[in-house]
Design a protein around this nucleic acid. Structure first.
Lengths: 198, 198
DNA sequence: CCATTAAGTCAACAGGTGTTGATTTAGTTC
DNA sequence: GAACTAAATCAACACCTGTTGACTTAATGG
């Protein structure tokens, strides 16, 4: 659970940037679990312990809020840090499996938010832009040969597939022992490698 | 475009099963393009050239309609026909790429409908049940060894990933020449094989 | 201490949601 | 052709949606 999703601890002080952050955090948590269309602004406001009107006031509306959740969450990007093509499979497998590392988990969560809401017309456009510029772009650049684009697509397909399987379809092969978890990470890495080399 | 999505051709006769089918068809087309939560019953009724009230009357409500769209579409299932484990990769690759074969296309469409709406709480439950019983179950049975379940999961992950990439994220590597299309099919088959063997 | 400004609250809006009951219409059967 | 039945229509329902304007309250500057 995040910092500010519960109603503020003591006396609520008047702090614009704090409530803004509180709304952003509550929205992130909601969009992480449901689709854009099925989340209401009143739900988010309730979680954040804030009046609904503030959302439209601070973010210009639901669409603006969603965009800010995504933009605020993309710090670091999925592929920003220096990463060679050969390291990618292992990196992605770890990203998918490891839910201890907070930083990794955060990156994966933003990915899930995108996956969840991509079918809502309004959110879809925002998401597709982001996927192109901030995921496929950097990824293709790392790969960097003639088939870079196509291979980036394959890689992303596998990543999305695993993400959907685990988080949306709730079919989680990772719910088992650490041993099973390790085997999964191996298989995932293997699959990512196949996406690159085949 | 489907048969009955446009307003009926001539004089509309009073035919319960025909209008029922018309609603079902219009709903399928809508759910194929948007998520459960963002599709309104009045949209569907409009497409079908039918009064909104008939939907709740015939299907018991939005949820019932959605369930019927899925159940009606699962004729044949994704894996019903006799299929050996070794044939699966080629079969799935063909399923994904070939949009000429109407039967194949139909199966894939049902898959997309599920992918699109899985994040809406009400539709999600229906979908997850169906995925378990009608996709993962038969698939694991075909694979049939000790790691069947895990390998079925991997296979499904790849299938969903490609589906999301193409239809929801609208990143379609298949928009090119027949040559490029053939290469894609090869790569997909390769990826499905990796999901099974690794 | 008062005035000013920003932050938060409240109520209402206009429009949309799924759903239901009463009513009318068309087709069938005697 | 009249009676009956099933199909389709209409209007309204209670509720929820995002958004806006006017208002109240708290903090800050002079």
């Amino acid at each position: 659970m995040s910092r500010t999703t519960i109603v503020p601890p003591g006396i609520k002080k008047r702090d614009a940037i704090a409530t803004r952050a509180s709304i952003l955090s509550a929205a992130r948590d909601r969009f992480l679990r449901e689709s854009y269309a099925s989340v209401g602004l009143r739900d988010i406001a309730g979680d954040a312990g804030v009046d609904v009107a503030l959302i439209s006031r601070y973010f210009g509306g639901k669409e603006g809020l969603f965009r800010d959740v995504l933009l605020h969450g993309k710090e670091g990007g999925l592929f920003r840090q220096p990463l060679s093509a050969t390291e990618i499979p292992a990196y992605l497998a770890q990203l998918v499996v490891d839910d201890a590392d907070e930083n990794r988990q955060h990156r994966m969560e933003m990915f899930i938010v995108m996956l969840r809401s991509a079918s809502s017309p309004q959110a879809g456009e925002i998401i597709r832009d982001l996927v192109h510029h901030d995921i496929l772009g950097p990824l293709a650049e790392i790969l960097g040969d003639e088939n870079a684009e196509l291979r980036a697509n394959m890689l992303l397909a596998v990543l999305m597939g695993i993400g959907v399987l685990r988080t949306i379809m709730k079919i989680d092969a990772l719910d088992g022992s650490p041993r099973q978890r390790a085997e999964c990470e191996y298989r995932f890495r293997c699959l990512f490698e196949a996406a690159l080399t085949c």
